[in-house]
Design a protein around this nucleic acid. Structure first.
Lengths: 260, 260
DNA sequence: CGGGGTTTTGAGACCGGTCAAACGCCGTGG
DNA sequence: CCACGGCGTTTGACCGGTCTCAAAACCCCG
């Protein structure tokens, strides 16, 4: 079972490498050379896990691009996220012991397996690791909250603009260009992710292109005016503002944490 | 510091009571009579925590109704959830050490404080508790995923219908009537939660009332045709179905978990 | 060179948002 | 006790952003 990490070219990672991948500077007091996590490769179109499948492992993306989807009672896909390097998959399976979403590779991928049992056992020995787990799950939760906020309040154009900028940021983080990159997903998948139709996505991209905010050539996107994209908003709630700006002032008055 | 649970009428809970509240049949091997968690009361309108405030404790609702909201750069509120008995608050604060949302009491509330440090320390001693934590966070994540799916794919009527049914279920769980209950939130808050305007919410409720699906009297809602409400959908994606039903068949072919 | 999937673009319909007015509920104070 | 005012709700009329349906162009790959 103990393997030399390099067998068949990069098949195992130690704890430190996993932490680095998650962007969590875990104080690795662990001399973790001997506890290794297996890598698995997936080809484009393959599924990492499916809905209803028994949960027993979490996944971390080491390279490649995927999507996670919900499938409703009619077989309609709802895209939930586009995980890439450093993202964790499978957390939704913990609660019911079954994955509640499906993860599909949009490109050839390299994924690290984290057997959940093993992980929790380790967490008990190494508190930083446990904390790391909570942190990753919390991060995921915050991301989804932002998503809900976006779906609930922004116009189509604003959603597409933010989507592009968040992609640009991710690519920058990974060391790629944030000015020029390739979309790994179809317009349909983008639309599903953003709560829009593929036609609306396409039209919006064309419009951005016209105005000179971006350049579009099939799935190649060039970001030409990041600031404009970042600040692009539509005025879906316009009347509610005055009231809530007033409320914002009052908000800072008392936080009412009662007697602790 | 050690107190007799009944001081000032029900101010402390032990671990077992907390587990029960979360509907998690935690194998309480813990003789938890001596480790107690404090209750705190909040009056209508008070905030349990605010955005940016330093995170150090999680909360469990023991009684009452609240809302959690995001506030965007213009002061607009986006309602994220309506927590009630048994729900956990504050998980979003773990990642950045600051709460990323704000929790407000919609009625007088009784809330249990779970100091996070204390909790994780306990988790190390009692594995079931640790597992419980993961479970609750995962549950929350699944709930938000469902929310995203709803916002991304359902019509206004379907959203309102589902909202009413999910409320009915919650009330049933808590032992109240699922056929007749009071909304604790305004139309505006419902609209924000569902990604709609308050007018649309109002109109939709009126329409349901006309058709005889529900009865509406201010904030008192009577559920008259649960089945119809449960099955109510609109056909926003109609063309995409054929394709994806076909895909659903293929899906079961091979799950591609590679060589484990 | 052909064929399936993806993308673009157009024309039209409709859902849901916007703006506006009136009503009801309720606590406050004259 | 009633008048008042604030807030939440309802309802109407209108408008516009997105979806729908359709057709054509494009790309990739065999």
């Amino acid at each position: 079972m103990e393997a030399g990490r390099q067998r068949q070219g990069r098949l195992w990672s130690n704890l430190k490498e996993v932490c680095d991948l998650l962007h969590i500077p875990a104080a690795c007091s662990v001399n973790s050379e001997e506890l290794l996590f297996q890598h698995v490769q997936f080809k484009t179109g393959q599924r990492i896990h499916t809905i209803g499948q028994i949960f027993d492992t979490l996944y971390i993306v080491n390279s490649g691009f995927l999507k996670t989807v919900l499938i409703d009672e009619f077989g309609n896909e709802q895209v939930l996220s586009f995980p890439m390097k450093g993202d964790m998959l499978g957390v939704d399976g913990i609660h019911t012991r079954h994955y509640s979403s499906e993860a599909v590779a949009l490109s050839d991928c390299d994924v690290i397996l984290l057997p959940f049992k093993k992980l929790t056992a380790l967490g008990r020995v190494h508190p930083e690791l446990e904390h790391l787990m909570y942190g990753v799950m919390s991060r995921e939760l915050v991301r989804e909250q932002a998503m809900i906020g976006m779906l609930g309040a922004l116009s189509a154009e604003a959603r597409v603009a933010r989507f592009l900028m968040s992609l640009a940021e991710r690519f920058a983080q990974m060391g790629y260009s944030s000015k020029l990159f390739n979309l790994r997903m179809t317009r349909h998948e983008i639309g599903s992710y953003l709560g829009l139709t593929l036609e609306t996505v396409s039209r919006t991209l064309s419009a951005f292109n016209e105005i000179g905010l971006i350049s579009v050539d099939q799935r190649t996107i060039g970001i030409k005016d990041p600031e404009a994209l970042k600040n692009l908003r539509r005025l879906p709630p316009s009347r509610t503002r005055a009231k809530q700006q007033a409320a914002a002032k009052v908000r800072n008055s008392e936080t009412a944490l009662a007697t602790l």
